[in-house]
């Protein structure tokens, strides 16, 4: 990737001028998006795949984003959706496979976190996907309620209520880790 030419660039819209350069986007936002995906799927390898899939989806649909300023928001939505899909596949696999078949976490995973943080992250992943997404977007991505609403295609009121309830659920899950693990 050291050099690029015009063919590497992906133009959006109907014009010939490239509006969105995926290579630039990839370099600029990949790390942040992988970090967000890790918070959503709690698995580094899966998070990398999720982000790669999001970029691949954008590459396949160059006209999906006509306004370059909205590309990051588009990618964020794509990562959320792809993370959801990855979790679905993981849950389905768990539903049909013996527990021993579930791969152990890698060295980068939450096992090496400080205990106080690990407890929160474990509880976070017992929440419903929508609750987890709202918390990650609000407390890690630092998006406003309006931005979260646009990202998740829900109302700002739902963002507020979901966040509020998610915090309560998080605290509850942390105080009852055993039940949370069973559910997960």
């Amino acid at each position: 990737m050291g050099t690029r030419n015009a063919e590497d660039r992906l133009a959006t819209g109907s014009g010939t001028e490239p509006a969105v350069d995926i290579t630039d986007l990839y370099a600029a936002h990949r790390l942040q998006l992988v970090r967000m995906a890790v918070l959503l799927v709690d698995d580094f390898g899966a998070a990398e795949d999720v982000v790669q899939d999001a970029f691949a989806a954008l590459a396949r649909r160059p006209d999906a984003v006509r306004d370059p300023s909205k590309t990051l928001a588009y990618l964020r939505v794509s990562v959320l959706n792809t993370a959801r899909s990855a979790l679905r596949r993981r849950r389905t696999a768990r539903a049909y496979a013996p527990p021993d078949d579930v791969a152990p976490p890698g060295p980068e995973d939450a096992a090496v976190l400080a205990e106080e943080h690990r407890e929160v992250i474990v509880a976070l992943h017992t929440l419903a996907p929508r609750q987890r997404e709202v918390l990650v977007l609000r407390y890690w991505s630092n998006l406003s309620e309006a931005e979260i609403a646009r990202t998740l295609e829900i109302s700002t009121g739902t963002v507020k209520s979901t966040a509020s309830r998610a915090l309560v659920a998080l605290e509850k899950a942390m105080s009852g880790t055993t039940a949370g693990k069973e559910e997960r």
């Binding site: 970029f55 980068e108 690990r118």
Partner: peptide
């Protein structure tokens, strides 16, 4: 709880460093 969550999310995210990512490859 918000502060604790914010700190935990940050700590977990910071575990992913640039050197952990696979080498850059063109998406297209």
């Amino acid at each position: 709880m918000e502060e604790r969550l914010r700190a935990a999310l940050s700590a977990r995210a910071e575990q992913v460093q640039p050197e952990h990512l696979a080498p850059l490859a063109p998406v297209v």
